[in-house]
Amino acid sequence: KAVLCADHGEKLQLFCQEDGKVICWLCERSQEHRGHHTFLVE
């Protein structure tokens, strides 16, 4: 069962290295995470 983003309802499948947390693809494109290094997690 996928864990969903509290903000967007999308699957949490990216790890943001700068923030040390898992985010969704919409979070990654938001101003908050712009320019951060993210990695796909399974």
Rank of each mutant, 00 (worst) to 15 (best):
E28T: 13
E28Y: 04
S30R: 07
C16Q: 06
E10W: 03
E10F: 11
H37L: 03
E10G: 07
F15T: 05
V3G: 14
G35M: 03
K11S: 14
V3E: 10
L4M: 15
L26I: 07
G20D: 15
E42D: 13
C16H: 04
Q13M: 05
K21M: 05
G9R: 10
C27K: 00
Q13S: 13
R29M: 08
K21T: 07
C27D: 01
W25E: 12
E18A: 03
Q31L: 04
V41A: 14
E28H: 03
E28K: 10
C16R: 04
G20L: 14
Q17W: 04
F15P: 06
G9M: 07
Q13E: 14
E10D: 10
W25P: 11
C24D: 00
K11V: 10
S30H: 06
W25T: 13
Q13A: 12
W25H: 14
I23A: 03
E18R: 05
V41I: 06
E28Q: 08
K1S: 08
A6W: 03
C5F: 00
L26H: 09
V3F: 15
D7Q: 15
R34V: 12
R29T: 08
C24G: 00
G20E: 13
L40Q: 15
E28D: 09
C5V: 00
D7G: 05
Q31M: 10
A2V: 13
Q17P: 05
C27R: 02
Q13L: 08
E42R: 15
G35Q: 06
K1E: 12
E28M: 04
L26K: 14
G9A: 10
K1G: 07
L12W: 09
H8A: 01
H8L: 00
I23H: 06
L26A: 11
V3C: 13
R29N: 13
K1D: 15
Q17C: 11
C27H: 02
C27P: 02
L4P: 02
G9K: 12
L14I: 12
L40N: 14
F39G: 13
K1F: 04
C16L: 01
L14D: 09
L14E: 07
L26C: 08
V3Y: 08
H33C: 06
W25M: 14
Q31C: 09
G9Q: 11
K11G: 11
D7L: 14
K11L: 06
E42C: 03
K1Q: 04
F15G: 09
Q13K: 14
E42A: 00
H33K: 15
V22Q: 10
E28S: 08
L40W: 09
T38G: 07
E28I: 03
W25F: 12
L40M: 15
R29H: 13
C24Q: 01
S30L: 06
L4G: 07
L26G: 10
R34T: 13
D7C: 13
C16T: 01
H36F: 00
C24S: 01
H37W: 02
